[in-house]
Design a protein around this nucleic acid. Structure first.
Length: 929
DNA sequence: CATGGCCGATCA
DNA sequence: TGATCGGC
C-alpha cells in the first residue's frame, strides 16, 4: 500500500491509457489572456529585467524560429524579433503561478468529465484510463449505435505506420499468414490485435476529449494512447502539437531499437546514466537481453523488475484517481548576491512565502474541504562555498501566515548551529540561498454541519492551537480509506475528496469493478472466426488483493475474451476480413507478450525479419524537414485560423490507405462503410499543394503525417476545429471594439482596471517603501481569510494579491495618456496595428523599454529589489563585526561547482521520432536472455 | 548571479 | 523523517 498500485500482469495490455499533455501550456494561457498576441511567436518569461528574463515556455511559432527554452528573453528576440514575451506575474516579489494552476484545473475538470480515472501528473499533464469507455464504445459499435468514422481519427497517428489508415488496414486483416508459426504465437497475435483495436477505438474517444478541452477551455493538447502509463507518456511526444499518437504493441520492438534508454520516464537521470554505463547499452532494445535477476542485482529489486518489464513494453502501474496535489508549497531562490544575509530579510521572505501558501491553503480548504497538518520548511545555505540544503517538518497548527513564518523561522534556527554571525543578533552566519515552505499531510474535514466552509475553518483555526484534531472526524473519512470494496484505484490518502467528487470516483470504481461481465461479445466478431481456440479467460481482478486493481483492465480482458455470437455490425463489419492482401507479414515480438514466468522459457521464435521493418522504414526524410521550410505561409494564415475544410474527399481515403504497391481491395466492407460516412464534417484542414501531388493518391493522413514532422506547419494541424463557426462578438460599450464573447468579461475587467485609481497602486508601493525604511518587513496581521475582493486594502501583503487577477491590466496612466505616450516609444509589435497595440515606455530605473501594461509590475520589481538590498545592507552593517567588507559583499563566488542538481549534460539529444536510423534485424531482440 | 518554481517518489 | 532525484 505504501508503494504504487499495480495491475495484474495478466492484464498487461488490456488497458487503454492516455496521457494528455497540454501544448506549451503557459503560452496558451497567455494567449488566451491576451488575444492580441494570438498566433504570434510567444515565449513566456519570468523575472524580466535580467537579460530579458528566463524563458519557461515557447510556443510552436517561436520554436519554428529557433527559440528554445534555456534562452533568455533577449536571445529569443535575436532569433525572432517579432516574438512576444509575456511575463509570469509577480506577486510578493516572486513568480506567481496561480494563473496557470487555474487554467490547468479548468482543463482537468474537462478531462474528469470523461472518466473518474484521472490522474493529474503535473500542472498540464494527466493520465486517463479510458478502458471502460472504450469497451462501452466497442459494444455500441457492435450494436450499430456507433460508427467509427474517419473524421473521428483526425490527427491521429500510429507509431510504426505511415498513416492511421495503414494501421486500420492492418487491424482489419483477419489472419496473419506471416509469422504463421506456433499456435501460441497466433493466439498471442490475436490478443495483441484485440488490444490494439482498443487503442484505436480509444483514439476516437481521445479525439473527443481533446475537442472538448479545446471547446470548453480554448486550449489545445496532444495525447499518447498506449497500454500503460510509461508508454502513453512516451508516445504523446511523437506528434505535437495538437495531435495524438497510438502505440500498437507490435511497434514497440522497432521503436525501442532507436529509443535511447534515457528517454524513458524513470530513466532520464542518473539512474539512466548508470544503467547505460553498467550494462554498456544505449537503447531500450538492448535491455531485453538481461535477465531480471541481473537487473535486480545491479539496480535494486524493485527497479530491476520494473526495467525488466519495461524492456518488454510492460508497465503495470495503475492509473490512480488523483485530482488534487498532496502538497501545496512555494519557494524561491536567492542566487549570488541576492543571498539572504540578515534576519529581517529572512523574516521578510518567510512571510512572503507563508502568505502565499496560506492564501493557497485557504482556497484549497474552500474547494476541497481538507486541511494540511504538516509544514515543511526547506532551505539551503552556503557554508564554505558549498551549498547545503536541509528540510525540517513541523506541525501545521493554523492557517495563519505569520504563525507559519514564525514557526518556520524557529525551525531553521533550531536546526542551524551558529545561526548568527559572531557578535551579531541580526546578521546570519551563513547566507541563505534558497527558501521553501510547503504544507502537506492533508486530512479531510468533516462535512461542515449546516455552516459554510468558512465557519469550519474558523473553528478549526481557533481551536487548533490546542488540539490538533480537526473538529469532526467523520463518516466521510471512513468511506475514503476504509470500506470501499476492491477498489480500482486507491484513493490517495488525505485526498479530501469533497462532495460529488467522492461519489464520482466511487461510482467509477464500481463501474469498472462491479460488472465483471459486461456486455459481451465485442470485437471478437471479426476475430473469433479464425481463432477457433478459446482464449483462456485472463485472470480476474479478484486475485491478489494488492494487484489487479485495475478492474477496468481485467474486465476488459473478460469482455474481449467472451466468445460470443451476436448480430454483427459496427466494427465487426468495419474491420471485416478483407481478402488476402496484406502486405505486412509477421510482426514478431514474442518476448513482449510473455509474463515474467514464461518469458524466459520461451524460445526466440524465429520470425521472418521483414514484417515490421517494412512499414517502419520510410518516413525518415520527412522529419528532416528544416525549420525554415514552411515559414511564410504560416505567418499569413496566422490570425484567421478558421478555414473551410476542403479535402472532404480525403477522408474517404482514410479507409483506403495508400499502400506502396497493392491497392486495398475496393470491395472491402471497410471501405464501403467509410465511404458511406464520408460526407460528414471532417477535422482535417487545408493542405497546400506542395508535396505529393494532391491527387487522390496520397491519403490525407499521410499528408498530415508529413505535416506533423515538419514543424512549420503546425498551423494546419489546428484544423480539427477549423470547421467551427467563428465566435460571435459583442461590441464593447466603452471602446466600441468587437470583442469575442468569451473574452468579454475579461475585457470588461480591463476597463475596470484602467479606471481604478492609480493611487491604489501607489499606496502599495509607498507601503513597501515604508516597510523598507522602517526596517519592519512584517506586515500588520491580516485577516486569516484570503483577501478576495479588491478595494484599497490598507497595505500589507494582502494588497497585491487582491489585485492579482487584474494586475496585468493596471496601468499607471489613464487610457488617454497611454495613447498619447505611444509616440515616444518603440512598439515591439509588428502586428496589425488596429488591435490593442503594445506601447512601451522607458523604465527610469533600468532604462529598459517596458510595455505599459506591465510597467507596474516592473516597478514593483525594482522596489522589491531595493527593499531586499536595503535590508541586507542594514543588517550586515549593523553589528560591530562583519565589517571590512562593503555592504553587500557576500562570498567570492568560487567555482561554485558545488551546486547540486546538475542537469544531464546532453539533454539536447532528441528523439524526434521513433522511426529512423538504421536498424538491427528484429531477431536481435529475441535472442532472449 | 542565473531556468525557476513546482510537485512527487524513493531510499536510508 | 530527511536527503536526493526526476521531470515539467
Amino acid at each position: 500500500m505504501s508503494t504504487k498500485t499495480t495491475i495484474n500482469i495478466k492484464n498487461k495490455f488490456d488497458r487503454v491509457v492516455v496521457l494528455v499533455d497540454m501544448d506549451c501550456f503557459y503560452c496558451q494561457v497567455e494567449e488566451k489572456l491576451n488575444p492580441a498576441i494570438r498566433g504570434k511567436p510567444i515565449a513566456v518569461v519570468q523575472y524580466n529585467p535580467w537579460q530579458g528574463g528566463g524563458i519557461i515556455a515557447v510556443n510552436y511559432p517561436a520554436r519554428a524560429e529557433g527559440v528554445t527554452r534555456h534562452m533568455r528573453g533577449d536571445e529569443a528576440k535575436q532569433h525572432c524579433p517579432e516574438i512576444e514575451l509575456p511575463q509570469v506575474p509577480q506577486v510578493r516579489g516572486k513568480a506567481d503561478l496561480t494563473r496557470y494552476r487555474e487554467a490547468g484545473k479548468d482543463v482537468a475538470d474537462v478531462l474528469k468529465s470523461f472518466t473518474p480515472l484521472l490522474e493529474r501528473a503535473s500542472i498540464d499533464e494527466a493520465y486517463l484510463d479510458i478502458t471502460e469507455r472504450v469497451l462501452t464504445r466497442i459494444h455500441e459499435m457492435n450494436e450499430g449505435k456507433f460508427q467509427l468514422r474517419p473524421e473521428k481519427l483526425a490527427n491521429t497517428f500510429a507509431v510504426g505506420y505511415e498513416n492511421i489508415g495503414e494501421f486500420i488496414t492492418k487491424l482489419s486483416n483477419t489472419f496473419d499468414p506471416a509469422g504463421g508459426t506456433a499456435e501460441s504465437n497466433s493466439q498471442e497475435r490475436l490478443e495483441y490485435k484485440k488490444s490494439d483495436i482498443k487503442l484505436l477505438v480509444g483514439a476516437s474517444i481521445v479525439n473527443e476529449i481533446r475537442a472538448a478541452v479545446k471547446e470548453r477551455t480554448g486550449f489545445e493538447c496532444s495525447a499518447g494512447i498506449a497500454h500503460n502509463k510509461i508508454l502513453a507518456k512516451l508516445t504523446a511526444g511523437f506528434h505535437k502539437p495538437n495531435k495524438q499518437t497510438i502505440l500498437p504493441i507490435n511497434s514497440i520492438p522497432k521503436l525501442y531499437e532507436t529509443l535511447p534508454l534515457k528517454k524513458v520516464k524513470g530513466l532520464g537521470g542518473k539512474l539512466g546514466d548508470q544503467v547505460c554505463e553498467v550494462l554498456k547499452i544505449k537503447f531500450m532494445s538492448e535491455l531485453v537481453q538481461f535477465p531480471e535477476s541481473v537487473l535486480q542485482q545491479h539496480f535494486e529489486q524493485r527497479m530491476g523488475s520494473w526495467m525488466y518489464l519495461m524492456a518488454r513494453g510492460i508497465d503495470l502501474e495503475a492509473v490512480t484517481a488523483k485530482f488534487h496535489s498532496k502538497s501545496i508549497g512555494c519557494c524561491k531562490r536567492f542566487p549570488g548576491k541576492n543571498a539572504i544575509t540578515g534576519l529581517a530579510t529572512l523574516h521578510h521572505w518567510l512571510n512572503e512565502l507563508a502568505s502565499e501558501v496560506t492564501e493557497r491553503l485557504e482556497k484549497d480548504l474552500d474547494e476541497n474541504n481538507r486541511t494540511a497538518k504538516q509544514l515543511t520548511v526547506s532551505y539551503s545555505q552556503q557554508i564554505d562555498n558549498v551549498d547545503v540544503s536541509s528540510t525540517r517538518s513541523i506541525a501545521l497548527v493554523a492557517y495563519d501566515a505569520e504563525r507559519i513564518a514564525a514557526d518556520a523561522l524557529d525551525a531553521i534556527k533550531r536546526n542551524t548551529e551558529r545561526f548568527f554571525a559572531s557578535n551579531s543578533t541580526t546578521a546570519l552566519h551563513n547566507p541563505i540561498k534558497f527558501l521553501g515552505i510547503s504544507a502537506g499531510k492533508f486530512e479531510p474535514n468533516g462535512a461542515g454541519k449546516g455552516g459554510g466552509i468558512k465557519q469550519m475553518f474558523q473553528s478549526y483555526s481557533s481551536k487548533a492551537a490546542n488540539a490538533d484534531e480537526p473538529p469532526h472526524e467523520t463518516e466521510r473519512r471512513k468511506s475514503v480509506s476504509g470500506e470501499t470494496p476492491d477498489v480500482v484505484t486507491e484513493l490517495p490518502k488525505g485526498a479530501g475528496t469533497s462532495k460529488e467528487e467522492q461519489q464520482q470516483i466511487e461510482k467509477g470504481n464500481d463501474a469498472s469493478n462491479g460488472e465483471p461481465s459486461k456486455p459481451k461479445g465485442l470485437i471478437q466478431h471479426f476475430l473469433q472466426r479464425q481463432s477457433a481456440l478459446a482464449p483462456g479467460s485472463t485472470g480476474k481482478s479478484e486475485e491478489t488483493g494488492s494487484e489487479a486493481k485495475t478492474a477496468s483492465a481485467s474486465s476488459s480482458s473478460e469482455d474481449v475474451n467472451q466468445p460470443e455470437s451476436k448480430p454483427k455490425k459496427g466494427i465487426a463489419q468495419f474491420l471485416q476480413p478483407k481478402s488476402a492482401i496484406n502486405k505486412e507479414s509477421s510482426l514478431g515480438s514474442g518476448e513482449l507478450s510473455k509474463s515474467r514466468a514464461t518469458v524466459e522459457s520461451i524460445e526466440p521464435a524465429a520470425k521472418p525479419k521483414k514484417g515490421i521493418e517494412q512499414f517502419l522504414k520510410p518516413k525518415s526524410d520527412v522529419q528532416q524537414e528544416t525549420a525554415t521550410g514552411h515559414e511564410q505561409e504560416k505567418e499569413e494564415n496566422n490570425n484567421d485560423e478558421v478555414e473551410p475544410a476542403p479535402y472532404l474527399d480525403d477522408t474517404v481515403e482514410l479507409a483506403v490507405p495508400e499502400q506502396e504497391e497493392s491497392q486495398p481491395e475496393p470491395e472491402s466492407r471497410m471501405e464501403r462503410d467509410v465511404q458511406i460516412s464520408a460526407p460528414a464534417p471532417i477535422h482535417e484542414s487545408e493542405d497546400p499543394p506542395e508535396e505529393k501531388p494532391s491527387t487522390s493518391k496520397a491519403s490525407f493522413v499521410e499528408r498530415s503525417n508529413a505535416r506533423a514532422d515538419a514543424k512549420p506547419d503546425y498551423k494546419e494541424t489546428y484544423a480539427e476545429y477549423s470547421f467551427q463557426v467563428p465566435e460571435p462578438t459583442l461590441e464593447c460599450p466603452q471602446c466600441k471594439k468587437p470583442i469575442p464573447e468569451h473574452e468579454f468579461q475579461s475585457h470588461q475587467d480591463f476597463h475596470f482596471a484602467l479606471s481604478l485609481s492609480q493611487q491604489q497602486r501607489d499606496e502599495f508601493r509607498n507601503d513597501l517603501k515604508t516597510k523598507m525604511t522602517s526596517k519592519s518587513p512584517l506586515p500588520a496581521k491580516r485577516p486569516s481569510k484570503a483577501v478576495v475582493s479588491a478595494g484599497p486594502t490598507s497595505g500589507g501583503n494582502g494588497a497585491p494579491s487582491a489585485n492579482l487577477s487584474i494586475a496585468r491590466f493596471l496601468s499607471k496612466v489613464s487610457p488617454e495618456s497611454v495613447r498619447s505616450s505611444s509616440a515616444e516609444v518603440a512598439t515591439g509589435s509588428n502586428s496589425k496595428a488596429d488591435e490593442v497595440p503594445e506601447y512601451h515606455t522607458k523604465c527610469s530605473d533600468c532604462g529598459k523599454f517596458i510595455p505599459l501594461d506591465s510597467l507596474d509590475q516592473h516597478n514593483d520589481y525594482h522596489v522589491a529589489k531595493r527593499l531586499q538590498q536595503e535590508l541586507n545592507r542594514l543588517e550586515v552593517v549593523v553589528p560591530s563585526q562583519a565589517t571590512s567588507k562593503p555592504a553587500l559583499v557576500v562570498v567570492a563566488s568560487g567555482a561554485s561547482s558545488s551546486t547540486k542538481r546538475k542537469r544531464p549534460a546532453n539533454s539536447s539529444d532528441k528523439v524526434t521520432s521513433p522511426v529512423k536510423q538504421k536498424l538491427k534485424p528484429l531477431s536481435s531482440y529475441f535472442t532472449k536472455l
